[in-house]
Nucleic acid binder design. Structure first.
Lengths: 332, 332
DNA sequence: CGTTAGCACTCGGTACAATCGACTGCTACC
DNA sequence: GGTAGCAGTCGATTGTACCGAGTGCTAACG
């Protein structure tokens, strides 16, 4: 598509622009490694690149800036990036001492991504759509309140406080838990079934309250979104208006979810500017990758930053973290 | 301390400045309700107020801007604010349909605060310091992994994945759970004790792994911090540098915690500028209030915004939400 | 004696012009 | 085809003048 020299010039422009955030002139490019022609020749080539839509001039007598198409070519022709040793070590350390609570780990993973790339990190945990009930337990908290704890097959735990008759007591709570586990085990979270009577009216009441709590809050646990490093967004842009728009987007969890979900089965993927499908993100790029649990697509991680982000670094970080995270989550 | 007229003038300046973000001149103040003197008189009074440290002139020929001392006087002499009916309704609706999962509710509460005030909402949940173990349960997830689910006396649930011998099976997991519950019930979370042998080595192994998981991660569940509406921070300031600093602060959870903790037994409280004790928040003010569970101080909620925030609105919102939240959390 | 009208003064913000410099496109030459 | 050189463009910077909001001060007023 582009001959070797044009590609080298384009690459030089992108790299320089990512570095300096200033339009790049022919002089700088002529001095760049891999380009051994004069600035005049570079000018001619850049004019062609602009005509073809890879570059753009902010105004007549300025240097060139990459267009989305230019960035796209750049990332498509990147040789597989490797993570810097320091960063690789950081990732290793992180997962070596990762904690037990999954949510906390995902939240910290978003911060890890942010630290590795100096961008905003995003982690979306899967919706608990097809989870099956693994066990249920009822624990009394006070005379009239108890906690229903349900463990699902994906390892998540749901809890609901329920009211119980004052005379119920610990034993009936325990009995109710056993009964629920027995009959609901393997049943889909969203379709609890009737549980036969235990013969004891108080126990039955606890059971029915529990089932009511489960059915009453149908899709109670949608995708969770963890965003880490929003302050880095403010550092990435000079225009405060842009910062406002992007932060606004990041706060609407469902928007973030839909942003990342479309992409889940593309593997490691980069969306640049309008490719994200969101107007306010026109000046942003998104690098995402899915992560797996037990070999199944579970959720998505990614980083969001300005279109002039460090793509090699971002790609390497997202790839490595998604890989490690998958390992960590499947082995337990 | 200040005579009636000075107080009225100061109030007029603060209110006008909160409204317009522009230095307030004597002319505007003279036209304000409650001040019935000429602009010349206002000028004289304002000169005194400046000498006393309540006002400040950005430059010689500009209007006046409140100092911290000025804001302080303003909030200290505010008559108890009431929440706008629309907002009161929003709060009512919110808690009427509040969901079961406590964490989710707290997270949404931070957003509620943000929506009510157009500021950034902050909620800190209590550290699980003195929680006692209420029950423990072990649920197998796969052949070699199981989930330890521990319910604490404060109604929180902790979960840890543990490895189990392949031959353990469901029954031994259940047995281990029973054993743990029996011996750890009422024991402080942070000091699990030895559990006597069950006689079955595999069960004992599950038990010891569980205890190890508990002790291995001592203060695994510190305060949680929920921050909602960070984008509003970007809207509050024109200087992007300020936005960067404040967002940076909000990302350091432990900083936010220490910010709010000092204040927990003061009731409804306002910290203005340097009163927060953090240099980067010099241009911010914080309105906080504790919330209770069962009559005990549990956590803190608050809003953070520019010093020129709408204090009456913020105070009203924080007060009402903390009250409602306490109710909601104690009744279950 | 407190209040007020009037006035001279200050100083940030804006509008405008001149200059500078980093580019470009083009043409002519190698 | 590649390159040197040159005229031209246009944003950014600097300097200047001006405007206006707002002040402090003084003198008059009830």
């Amino acid at each position: 598509m582009l001959d070797e020299r044009k590609a080298a010039i384009l690459r030089a422009v992108v790299e320089e622009y990512i570095d300096t955030a200033q339009p790049v002139g022919s002089g700088h490019v002529a001095n760049a490694p891999g380009v051994d022609v004069s600035s005049a020749t570079v000018r001619n080539e850049m004019a062609t690149l602009e005509a073809d839509g890879y570059l753009r001039q902010p105004h007549t007598s300025a240097g060139r800036v990459p267009t989305e198409k230019g960035y796209r070519f750049f990332v498509d022709h990147l040789q597989p990036p490797r993570l810097a040793p320091r960063s690789a070590e950081e990732v290793r350390d992180f997962f070596a001492q990762a904690h037990g609570q999954v949510e906390q780990m995902l939240s910290e993973t978003s911060r890890l991504l942010s630290n590795l790339t100096n961008l905003t990190g995003v982690v979306v945990s899967p919706a608990a759509t097809e989870a099956l009930i693994r066990s249920a337990q009822v624990v009394t908290l006070s005379a009239t309140a108890a906690l229903l704890v349900v463990v699902l097959s994906d390892g998540t735990v749901e809890k609901h406080t329920i009211e119980v008759p004052e005379t119920a007591g610990d034993e009936r709570a325990a009995a109710a838990g056993l009964l629920l586990t027995m009959h609901l085990r393997g049943v889909a979270r969203h379709a609890p079934v009737a549980v036969p009577s235990s013969g004891d009216p108080l126990t039955d009441m606890v059971v029915s309250r529990s089932i009511h709590a489960l059915t009453g809050l149908p899709s109670d646990d949608p995708e969770h979104v963890y965003v880490g490093g929003t302050a880095r967004m403010a550092q990435a842009f000079d225009a405060i208006e842009t910062v406002r728009e992007v932060l606004g987007i990041l706060e609407q969890q469902f928007v973030v979810v839909s942003l990342l979900r479309d992409v889940i089965d593309r593997g490691l993927y980069v969306a640049i500017g309008t490719e994200t499908g969101m107007a306010p993100l026109a000046e942003c790029a998104l690098v995402v990758a899915p992560y797996d649990i037990e070999g199944e697509r579970a959720g998505t991680i990614g980083v969001l930053g300005p279109t002039r982000m460090n793509y090699p670094q971002a790609l390497a970080a997202v790839a490595v973290v998604s890989h490690r995270l998958s390992d960590r989550l499947t082995e337990g």
